[in-house]
Design a protein around this nucleic acid. Structure first.
Lengths: 166, 166
DNA sequence: AATTTACGTCAGCCTTGTTGACTTTCCAAG
DNA sequence: CTTGGAAAGTCAACAAGGCTGACGTAAATT
């Protein structure tokens, strides 16, 4: 199925059928995306919510609780339940803020970093395999479409995490 | 598909940093992906699980319960709870199988199709906007990477839905 | 006739989300 | 210095949507 990009073909990708394919691709791919971390976490007392918290604390060490709330898009009660167990179990450390002592700056402990590594290794391995199979050009397109699909606020969050990087 | 272009550039997209960007893009984009249907369904007695059932019944009219179980990857108890309410509310019809009377062939009623239309219109609108912003080449890459990210069984499900189409 | 398959259902549990109400701590403005 | 409000934490109650296990029934298969 060679894709000769000429003329009317340029709009063919906007047909309902093409859009539905994209929708189903998102559905099935997201299942794969979460499958490996889910497998690792089952058996431990943790779930996907813990994974997400760990990921973003690792990503932005010292982030505050309300910062995390904005990124994760859940209520503080929901996040707190997750965070509490992680702190109790010694995976996350909540340091009282220096300038503003109301804030808690969140950090992963060595133990927390171990689990983070384990989880992200698995997730990256799948992503790497997919990227390798698809090739650099496809990866570029993949990220472009995903970014366009985000809500504006989410896109800001996504891009702000990108700031100050190579 | 030009592959393995020479030079270091061809592998740059496999760095951990690039992979992490992909991971976060998936996370944020999936939130956007589900946001519109979620908004429509809140207030009704339905949720994401109902949406998924409706989507795949619409996609494969006459599909059986066990078929749907395979696609959705949940237990029959979980699916049944959803399916029961949809049947009670007159959105889905379960016809006794013709050749095998143990099976139930699932169809959307007119009412069910109305809701399906509403949901998929919203979801397609977002997908369309993202596709339009990204362009045909990006869309091609998007789908390629997503497909590579699926579990083999999911990929079969995905592709089998594709069979017999233009 | 016995077994297997497809489906439905009851009961109970877990995770992870939600509201609402309330307290404590603390910064900052009046 | 007092006070308003932001940040954080906590309790309680609830809902959606997963799960397991056990059981029942009808129909197909062997």
């Amino acid at each position: 199925m060679a894709e000769s990009t000429t003329g009317g073909e340029s709009l063919l990708f906007l047909t309902d059928e093409q859009l539905r394919k994209g929708i189903e691709a998102m559905f099935f791919a997201y299942r794969g995306f979460t499958a490996d971390p889910d497998r690792i976490l089952e058996g431990m007392d943790y779930g996907r919510a813990h994974h997400r918290a760990i990921h973003f604390i690792h990503r932005s060490p010292g982030t505050t609780v309300s910062n995390l709330l904005g990124i994760l898009g859940v209520t503080k009660q929901s996040l707190n339940r997750v965070l509490r167990t992680l702190i109790e179990d010694g995976l996350v450390e909540a340091r009282v803020g220096k300038t503003d002592k109301r804030e808690r700056n969140l950090h992963l402990t060595a133990k927390g970093q171990d689990l983070e590594r384990q989880l992200s290794d698995a997730q990256r391995a799948r992503m790497r395999a997919a990227y390798r199979a698809a090739g650099p050009a496809a990866v570029q397109g993949f990220r472009t479409v995903l970014e366009a699909m985000m809500d504006p606020e989410m896109r800001r969050q996504y891009q702000s995490l990108r700031e100050g990087e190579k």
